[in-house]
Design a protein around this nucleic acid. Structure first.
Lengths: 196, 196
DNA sequence: TGCTTAATGTACCGATAGGTATAATAAGCT
DNA sequence: AGCTTATTATACCTATCGGTACATTAAGCA
């Protein structure tokens, strides 16, 4: 009952994702969003709550749509292969020609003033989930004998995520896909072998 | 001739650096700055031009005061040592207990809306200068036989800077100095040996 | 055909953004 | 002292921020 919505919320959310990804959370204004989505302010607020709610929705969409490769990557046969797939998959996302370069999560969190500390903490927490997933995989690998027993998995998970974050910054600055794959090439040279 | 300035521009610039470093370029308002500096708006504009000019001044100060270790680091005996000093020195800056965590350059550049693209490009250019200094050092090392001839220095310079950027993001998210040094530990494991 | 309900378009809210006009003030110079 | 000059303090500018009140429009239901 009542008037029908004249726009597709899923399509609108896709556009919001593009805008937030290009401009970051604080750099995006409600007017930026409504113009790009082709809807009015009250329609946006009625459909998505407030700016913070909308951003969280776009984060969910981003993870399900662009970061989903990580689950599969972690299921690779070896820990080394899992990590390389993780990094290379992330490079593809960061330099997807159909989207603004860089990572929604990283672009949003870095230069977030304390006025929006809730968002900052949310992004840090989500990043930590990914790091912990990788950590679990490395610990499993160590039990399997696939990862040296004298290495500290947490140190490696932290390293891998750090390399990813660095590439995200570079991507946002216009780095090419090839450049970032060469970063992965070098980063993987650190990988430990059982024989030392 | 004329009335004397009642504040020390150098001191004021130090405070501006702290504020910009904590809040980023766009996240810092003129009111944030004048309150912290203890001066009025017209005094700020008279002494430093506009917000963008002031930010560039703080960038200069930041580089001369906090990033100056890089020059010395690059003069180390071996390329490997130079790179390790570079990364460890950067960790110290990122987690300096006397300053807000993270890097002024990184925090400012990542989520900068295109309204301030001039600043974004300035920061990217300054970062590129540092990467090129490292690149020059690695190429010199290769001439000296201190770096394998079959390695591509540009790939390694890019890798090292990327690790630095990743650590900068982590630092801004609250990473400890110890955590970041462990990232350097792992990152240096990639370093190439002449015998392969 | 009303009646209800929900989405729309317009126009607005107070707060804050970066930046400035203007007048009062304090110094050096003659 | 009186003039000039540069810095202050107050008050204001326009534009935009996130968010909303309100009247209008379009749909389903009786």
């Amino acid at each position: 009952m009542g008037r029908h919505r004249e726009f597709d919320p899923d399509e609108a959310l896709q556009i919001a994702l593009q805008v937030f990804r290009r401009r970051g959370y604080e750099g995006t204004s409600i007017s930026d969003l409504t113009e790009a989505m082709g809807i009015t302010r009250p329609s946006l607020y009625a459909a998505f709550g407030n700016k913070e709610d909308l951003f969280r929705r776009t984060l969910d969409l981003y993870e399900h749509q662009h970061l989903c490769f990580a689950r599969e990557a972690l299921q690779a046969q070896t820990a080394r292969d899992a990590v390389e797939r993780l990094l290379r998959g992330y490079v593809e996302v960061l330099t997807d020609p159909m989207s603004p370069p860089g990572c929604l999560g990283v672009n949003g969190a870095v230069a977030c003033s304390e006025a929006n500390e809730a968002i900052r903490e949310e992004l840090i927490a989500r990043r930590m989930v990914n790091e912990n997933n990788l950590l679990d995989r490395l610990e499993r690998a160590r039990s399997d004998g696939d990862f040296p027993g004298d290495e500290v998995p947490a140190d490696w998970a932290r390293y891998v995520v750090s390399v990813g974050l660095g590439m995200a910054v570079r991507a946002a600055s216009g780095a090419s896909r090839e450049e970032l794959h060469r970063v992965v090439d070098v980063a993987m040279r650190a990988w430990p072998t059982a024989i030392r």
